[in-house]
Design a protein around this nucleic acid. Sequence first.
DNA 1: TATAATGTTTAGGTTTGCCTAAATATTTTG
DNA 2: CAAAATATTTAGGCAAACCTAAACATTATA
Lengths: 221, 221
Amino acid sequence: MFTQSEENYLKAIFHLQQEAEKGVSTSKLSALLETKASSITEMVKKLAEKNLVNYQKYYGVELTDTGRKQALIIIRKHRLWECFLVEQLDFKWDEVHEVAEQLEHIKSEKLIDAIDRLLGHPKTDPHGDPIPDKDGNFTKKNTSLLSECRVGSIGIIVGVKDSSPSFLQYLDKQCIALGTKFNLRHKEPFDNALEITVNDQVIKVSHKMASNLYVDIGYTS
Amino acid sequence: MFTQSEENYLKAIFHLQQEAEKGVSTSKLSALLETKASSITEMVKKLAEKNLVNYQKYYGVELTDTGRKQALIIIRKHRLWECFLVEQLDFKWDEVHEVAEQLEHIKSEKLIDAIDRLLGHPKTDPHGDPIPDKDGNFTKKNTSLLSECRVGSIGIIVGVKDSSPSFLQYLDKQCIALGTKFNLRHKEPFDNALEITVNDQVIKVSHKMASNLYVDIGYTS
DNA sequence: TATAATGTTTAGGTTTGCCTAAATATTTTG
DNA sequence: CAAAATATTTAGGCAAACCTAAACATTATA
Ligand SMILES: [Mn+2]
Ligand SMILES: [Mn+2]
Ligand SMILES: [Mn+2]
Ligand SMILES: [Mn+2]
């Protein structure tokens, strides 16, 4: 069994590993976990001791197979709890993360399996992120960003890269949600702002916003 | 906000206060929390510092109004989670306590209110214990024990005093559950063992067992 | 490629919540 | 009511998970 702190480190290392192919640096972890670099070094040594990560002084860490498996168990719990909160308790998608950060540490396999069953074994969480199965398998989601689409594309919003409450609330205000079908009409050369239509309504999407929206592209008109 | 440890102390003090009218002793807390007496003394001083308990060296502690209110919030959460596990996730009544011990520490008023609403504001938990409302009010349950009933009584099982898994499993095996209607037929003078009938079936109930079952007595035949 | 800038680790502390052993207070009992 | 038994507190330590400041390694730059 692992401490809450250890679990948070494993999760953080997993997430950072997804982006950078190299070892995850102390400073990246420090920033993500909002913990001083020196504390990161200490904990990382402890995780290496327990064979959850490979650690090379000054060159960062990587999860071992055991570490990766454990990280995925926590991520599975986090995302299932987020689904539960939205689907059973009517939480909004911007309200779930903080509570899920707590719930993900509850130790009971029976509990999380029951939640999974209650929800009908969902494949993605309220932010479009994939939910690993009990063995840690999950289908990596499409990684096209709206910002990278060509003008004329038709597609569906399937996920958010930034899932901070402020961004999610902004999406709500703009009537953009997961599953929203859009038509990319125009890209402004000056600032890369986009214009999309949703149900024949024109919505302006800044470049920053568009680069935080994952999409499935259908066909190009 | 309080630490998990502090919350466990408040809950323990509350429970022990229910039985003994005097101040709760260090040794009682030590036994219940499975923590050495010296550690209890330390923590109790900290709680006194925070005005959650009144503490008199050598004479035990009592909850202040603030402390009592806080204890009831935790107990409310514990019992609501137990209901949730049984009613929504098909846990058995002997499987819920351990998980609820973890879930009761999740910090989110919105969450527990939503669980309460989902369950339809239940008044008692799976062991027959009352669930305090948001303000800490609850109706103290009937405290008649089966062991104290007169032969000839008719009644209903409404709660368990001991809610250890082993006792609950034993009750399952004997087909005794909350809501079970019984007829107290005989009391054996030698060992105070009882014979009750449930649906015309005779069940032998030892004195120890009977002294852990709360009942509502209807009328005496 | 030497030096400066940046990133990482080490050394030494702090707080929380626990422990054992010893000291002290209370309670029981002869 | 004094001695013995029991309960409680105090003193001194430990591990986990943080911190700051200083030392040291790596990387960037002139
Ligand atoms: Mn989340
Ligand atoms: Mn999510
Ligand atoms: Mn319980
Ligand atoms: Mn209960």
